[in-house]
Simulated scan of single mutants.
Amino acid sequence: MTEDFESLVVRAVRTQQGEGIDVYAFFLFGSDLTRIADISRIHRDERELKGFQRKEIRSHVRSIVEFLDSGPVLFPNAITLALSPEIRFEPSRGPKPNGLAEVGVSGTLTIPFRTEGDRAAWIVDGQQRSLALAKAKNSRFPVPVIGFVSRDLQIHREQFILVNKVKALDVRLINELLPEVGSLLPKDLAVNRLPSELCNLLNRQPKSPFYKLIKRASDTGDESSVVSDTALIAAIKQNLRPPLGALSQYKHLPETANPDAMYETLTLYWSAVRDTFPHAWGKSPSESRLMHSAGIKAMGSLMDQVMLRADSSEDPDAEVREALQRLEPYCAWTEGAWENLGLAWNDIQGTPQHISKLADHLIQLDRKLSRPSR
């Protein structure tokens, strides 16, 4: 790749799609993306809709920058550009290897440098990544680019919609894959890796109260799996939050965390839950709100308070079981109604409002019942 004062020259491969539309594949330095391409922000003037790109999402851009700056990283995600017909392509000369698949023609692509608002390319997909690459410490990070030649804003919009209408990866699939990934990850994914691994252990270990009860993305339809892994992972993430999270004492830096101790603590608490509410354990969420995402998250919140007392007692297991036994008469997991909540057992839903109300009710009730009688 070379550049002068007026243009950027890169090695590229050209092919055609659609009705004779030239499409190019090439690499350039990340810092050059915003020098050759404009971001067409969506807005309206007095007559019509302009552009198509959403606003910059600063938190997303910041997360990508942190990942790019974290060390040697693999970042092969291609940016899609619409290219002005002003670009120039010169095919390479020379002999062709025997058996060459003539899918594209190699050569050099010249893209002129222009001032912002008048550039010879427009970012169709990857604006957040492009902004992050421009801010990353390594300005010469090589980035794959796919570019198609068109000035037609309608085509730009069509491609933008087609690229972004594809359903995002299922969060459950991402969570299950995370423990298998050994490389550096962006912070927003890395924080889920440990909870997901603990979720795996709880589902696989025969001594776990959740043994084969957790629904994971890799399940093939086992009807015995009734607990949402997303709900349990959310509960474990809360248990990991310092300073009062039940698992936070075992988590310092990622490399010094003690997942074995975390697993044992989770097993102790949730085994007591299972034994205290045997009639509600292992049933489908429609039959038991304890197995519902609302019940899992609310009981996960209660875990922090109960384990704080249990950890300072001579017999943590007994302390947890006694606390739950005190609560048992007031719980309506499979029938009846929740006193003070004004909700029948099956009215509890997995909304933030219901989860918060149920968790607060259980926590307040536990505080009241755990006070020594006078």
Rank of each mutant, 00 (worst) to 15 (best):
S130M: 11
F75S: 07
D22C: 10
S208N: 09
V227T: 05
P195N: 07
K357C: 10
S248D: 08
G221V: 08
G71S: 05
K368M: 07
N346C: 06
D347L: 06
L169H: 03
A246T: 06
G18L: 03
R321T: 13
I79M: 10
P195Y: 04
Y263T: 00
E255I: 13
R88I: 12
L68Y: 00
M1G: 06
I233R: 03
L358K: 02
G18F: 02
E86K: 07
T110Y: 05
D315K: 06
L189A: 04
F113P: 06
D304Q: 07
R41S: 14
H354I: 03
V320C: 04
P91R: 10
W122S: 04
S196L: 09
A323Q: 08
S130Y: 04
P76Q: 03
L232K: 01
A37C: 08
P95N: 09
S63F: 01
L266Q: 02
H361Y: 15
G99K: 07
R321K: 13
N200G: 14
L290D: 02
E116V: 04
E255R: 10
F89S: 02
R157T: 09
K55A: 15
R193S: 11
L178T: 05
L131P: 03
R54W: 14
L253G: 12
Q205P: 00
P195L: 04
G350F: 06
P195F: 04
S139V: 14
K215H: 11
K357W: 12
L177P: 01
D304N: 15
P179C: 14
V10L: 03
G295K: 00
N239A: 10
P329K: 14
A136W: 01
P243A: 13
Q154N: 15
N98I: 15
S313I: 13
P372I: 15
I355N: 00
G51K: 09
I296K: 04
L131S: 09
D170A: 02
M262V: 05
R129P: 05
Q16E: 14
L358Q: 05
K357Q: 13
W338H: 08
K135N: 11
R172A: 15
E86G: 08
V273M: 03
K251Y: 11
L302N: 04
H60V: 00
H292G: 05
L268C: 05
V23Q: 05
F89L: 09
I79F: 06
R374C: 05
A323F: 02
S356R: 10
R309C: 00
T115A: 15
L202T: 03
T230G: 09
T15Y: 15
A280W: 01
K357D: 11
K237C: 06
M307R: 08
E46A: 07
E319D: 14
R88W: 02
I236T: 01
A235S: 12
R14K: 14
L202E: 03
L162S: 12
I363E: 09
Q349I: 02
F210I: 03
G71L: 00
I39Q: 04
G20W: 11
G300D: 05
R371C: 12
L185Q: 09
E176I: 11
E46F: 11
E264T: 14
